[in-house]
Design a protein around this nucleic acid. Sequence first.
DNA 1: TCTGGGGTCCTAGGACCC
DNA 2: TCTGGGGTCCTAGGACCC
Length: 351
Amino acid sequence: MDALRVILHVDLDAFFPSVEVREHPELKGKPVVVGADPKEGKGRGVVSSASYEARKFGIRSAMPISRAWKLCPEGVYLRPHFDLYNTASNSIMEILKSHADRFEQGGIDEAYLDISSRIKDFDDAGEFAKKLIEEVLHKEKLTCSIGVAPNKMLAKIGSDFKKPYGFTVIREEDAKDFLSPLQVRKIPGVGPKTEKMLKDLKIETIGDLAAINPERLTRLFGVWGSRLHEYANGIDYREVREEYETKSIGRELTFEKDVNDEGQIFEVLDELAEEIHEELIDNGFRFKTITVKVRYEHFDTYTRAKSLSFPTNDLDILRNNSKRLIDAFLRGNKKIRLIGLRVSTLMHRNS
DNA sequence: TCTGGGGTCCTAGGACCC
DNA sequence: TCTGGGGTCCTAGGACCC
């Protein structure tokens, strides 16, 4: 028999609004929406995260803030306070890390823990998860949900299954029955496009997907197709990995109103370059590739990239190249909604 | 309904080299 | 005369995640 492998996926419940409520107890029980300024329904931007009370009105992450406002004008609308969320996240991640053989953070509000050596079976692992939820609640006054499973994919689906403030144990022998009735969209990596493609093929549940010939999925989706077949069958060999390397650093800005004034665009581009440069210096990175991004008024989006023959962290090189790259986008008379700048092919100084 | 900002990974064509 | 094959880098675009 294979050695027991137990992975936890810990997901903080409605994290941004929950931190806001913790800091401002008078908000408890109210529909709290963290995101862009709704400006009486005329705001530009989206919802970052909505409290469970706000979700009752149909408000969801990534929804246009103007639509959220129409659904619930009486809601409490807050701009994000990332310093607050980062502090809370760091404290919680330290707690989680201290209980894991291996630990992998997957964003500000979630993490994978490999706890194989710390439990003797899945019953034991369920108790472990319950205690962890209570420890986080006691120490940080925030709730989370946990999935307990033999791999990352199942653990992630599990953490979403009884939210908020719940946990779900999925044993290897129960995995296929557990997955079978769920919508394909529940599989991490299946978004709106893949869901639509599968639906057109009459594949709606994970059970439908598991029954499809794997060669057919590979023909349709390439490498991702064979991965999909594994996931649908409850199989995922990915390890919880501790080490993480930054691949790129970028900044972007959506203007309050679409612009066609070159001066304003260059000014913002310089600010983006300065912020990126600061982060490069702080972290001891050099870059080789510069990519600018432009989104025009009707949301058509383009990028232009340039790779240098040498790595650098020089601000003037970044500024001058980004100006040259964006120049081609300023020719027409289309108004610009967003500009972005990103550097990649990163290497550490002294390497 | 009208779409943020931070990222990662994948694909595909062309250049270039051996 | 009728056009290799593999590897790597570069560029552009797209799907997806939180």
